[in-house]
């Protein structure tokens, strides 16, 4: 099936993200990319665990002083919900319902923006209330690097999904852009999974000292 072909609801195949060779390659290649990203984040988690609470003087804030569950919980809920809405978007993509896909992608982006806003507030809060900064201690470096890398991934994902939505707003779905939407949503799930680990390792484990 050619990627440029004009599609209708009737001709839309069951797995529109894997119809052409280019699409199949993109699909598989993206999974491999996520495999590499897993190693990247695993390395950052290892660094964080090695340097957690390693501060140069005893009056500096440690994990148990910094983290508050309510904020981390709201951020987690926002991001988990955004993963769900991106699933809805992909459901409508598979049903050739372009408008609803755009709508749910839009909601995903809004939720992601909310998450990012709270993260910026959180970092700002730590720096000004606790003098816990990127340069203040090895703990600070490791915390901001791990959580910041994730935040940068969220920001990149937002730019990516928004670009896709604007670029295709007048063109509708085709077998050329279906895999693009699909891998963007895969990416979004991945950063959601990483956040689940951050929530556990950084925030929950941080609470118990």
């Amino acid at each position: 099936m050619a990627a440029e072909q004009k599609m209708t609801y009737e001709t839309w195949p069951a797995s529109p993200e894997k119809q052409t060779l280019e699409a199949k390659n993109k699909f598989l290649g993206f999974w491999f990319f996520l495999g590499g990203e897993t190693v990247l984040f695993a390395s950052l988690f290892a660094t964080y665990l090695a340097l957690k609470d390693k501060v140069p003087s005893s009056d500096m804030a440690l994990a148990k002083d910094l983290f508050e569950i309510p904020l981390a919980f709201i951020m987690t809920m926002l991001l988990l919900t955004s993963s769900l809405t991106s699933v809805y978007a992909m459901y409508h993509m598979k049903n050739f319902n372009f408008k609803k896909m755009q709508l749910w992608l839009g909601i995903t982006v809004l939720l992601g923006l909310g998450f990012l806003g709270l993260e910026i507030y959180e970092f700002n809060h730590y720096v000004h209330e606790f003098h816990h900064s990127f340069t203040s201690s090895a703990f600070g470096s490791a915390f901001y690097t791990l959580v910041g890398f994730h935040g940068a991934h969220v920001a990149f994902g937002l730019l990516w999904i928004t670009t896709l939505m604007i670029r295709n707003s007048k063109r509708g779905l085709s077998l050329y852009n279906a895999p693009k939407f699909y891998v963007a949503s895969l990416y979004w799930h991945f950063i959601d999974v990483v956040w689940v680990f951050i929530f556990t390792v950084v925030y929950l484990m941080g609470m118990v000292g």
């Binding site: 660094t47 090695a50 390693k54 501060v55 140069p56 090895a138 703990f139």
Partner: peptide, 11 residues
């Protein structure tokens, strides 16, 4: 940052 600086808690 201070990842590798033992004086700042690094390793």
């Amino acid at each position: 940052s201070n990842f590798f600086d033992p004086a700042m808690g690094g390793n």
